[in-house]
Design a protein around this nucleic acid. Structure first.
Ligand code: MN
Ligand code: MN
Ligand code: MN
Ligand code: MN
Lengths: 234, 234
DNA sequence: GATAACATTTAATCATGGCTAAAACAAAGG
DNA sequence: CCTTTGTTTTAGCCATGATTAAATGTTATC
């Protein structure tokens, strides 16, 4: 009866809608200003295309938008974002854990699958995984009700020398880099400590589960760690 | 170098293209005349839409088509059909067997997923299932190379009375009917025998794994069976 | 062999989600 | 304040895949 446009429309959102909404959510959560050109950049479309779609989303009451202002999600928009993100991350974990796809490939696959799975399949996947709360990169999986556990951690680049940490999150999506990290054994939950820090934001010497490796500063900045003893073992 | 249009174009086919090609293949394999309106009917689009798409497919060298004539797949068209069908049926089986989705739901789910899974995921699914050759409805799964095992069997409606058969295939996609069959325990490989056949194509009295049920004639016509002892047990 | 009935194709439109180029606006510096 | 620079929006366009209505072709019947 009221003006719950987006709600009564029901399931009319396309993959394009969902990707824009998810992108807005993700940019927002990285504390980046959500402008149409940031969006365009993130989605590899022209700024004009982003403007166009954002207007449609505003018509659907999924985003708040005034020309030349930055964009935010409405409550229903955020619901959609969390739903899609839940699909995405559940799929990533499922593909990696159950179907043994390499962790650098699961993102691209989930990017397409996230838009076409039914609620029933989402539930089945979640159940098969034991209702997990983090994906293979350590990103939190929103619950069915839209709750997101905040994953803590500090950048490895800012960690103390000679202290044992646990890798909890990898803020990276690029396949090449993920493959590289995988080759070093740098997956969530691995033990890592800083042996030496070169000056001027130079490379770091790290101990990864016993092996010594050099790691570029910007890589280390994308690895979130927590002190080993602050975490529940296994 | 030659005129292998469809081949060099590579992966430019959309879900719409794939669904049309698959529909042509399926109609053909049911010995139905593949006209644009049969296609339109099968895909729930208008005849004009079918004509339109078929012309595009002809341009891509995927179908053979002359106005007012019936349609057939080219060699590359058939390759595409088998590829999509493989995706579809592997997915159906995976969703049913591994994720425990009810068999009446897997078709609709696979209908969407079939267009978005990568070769790597297709392979992973096939491997996880032990490279299976039939889906949950008894339909054959094309191999990676495009081979299709022909599933034998005669309609239960034409079977002999008082002989033990094995259900091998269910030629039905409708959710309601599948749910009904499932409730009767009528899945592939179940033992079934005809106790009594009513005249004038009337209902059949059948023994399903020990239980007696009446079955409408047209239902029975969609159930393919083989003599129990002609088949490898288990 | 003409014509009626039906099937099929063509023509004209529409919605979606892109694009480029041009116009409008915002922010900063002089 | 005014102008320059860069950002954002508008305008005009395109491809895709659908639609309906009109035109055309095919087939069967008399
Ligand atoms: Mn996506
Ligand atoms: Mn992830
Ligand atoms: Mn499909
Ligand atoms: Mn099937």
């Amino acid at each position: 009866m009221a003006k719950t446009k987006a709600l009564d429309k029901g399931k009319t959102l396309t993959a394009a809608h969902e990707d824009y909404i998810k992108a807005i959510y993700l940019l927002r959560s990285q504390d980046e200003e959500v402008t149409n050109s940031a969006l365009a950049n993130h989605l590899n479309v022209s700024p004009a295309s982003a403007t166009n779609m954002v207007k449609k989303l505003a018509d659907l009451n999924l985003v708040e938008y005034e020309p030349y202002q930055s964009i935010s999600l409405t409550v229903s928009g955020e619901r959609v974002a969390l739903e899609v993100l839940r699909h995405h991350r559940l799929l990533e974990l499922y593909l990696h854990q159950e179907l043994k796809l390499p962790w650098d490939q699961v993102h691209a696959e989930a990017e397409r699958l996230e838009h076409v799975i039914s609620e029933a399949l989402e539930d089945a996947i979640s159940l098969a995984l034991g209702n997990p709360l983090v994906d293979p990169h350590g990103d939190p999986i929103p619950t069915k009700k839209g709750m997101v556990e905040s994953v803590g951690g500090q950048p490895l680049s800012a960690a103390r020398v000679h202290r044992k940490y646990r890798l909890v999150r990898v803020l990276m999506q690029d396949e090449e880099r993920l493959r590289y990290l995988g080759a070093l054994g740098l997956y969530p939950n691995v033990a890592i400590s800083l042996l030496e820090r070169a000056p001027f934001d130079g490379p770091l010497l790290v101990d990864i589960d016993g092996e010594h490796h050099a790691l570029a500063y910007d890589m280390a900045a994308s690895l979130l760690v927590v002190a080993w003893d602050e975490t529940i073992e296994e």
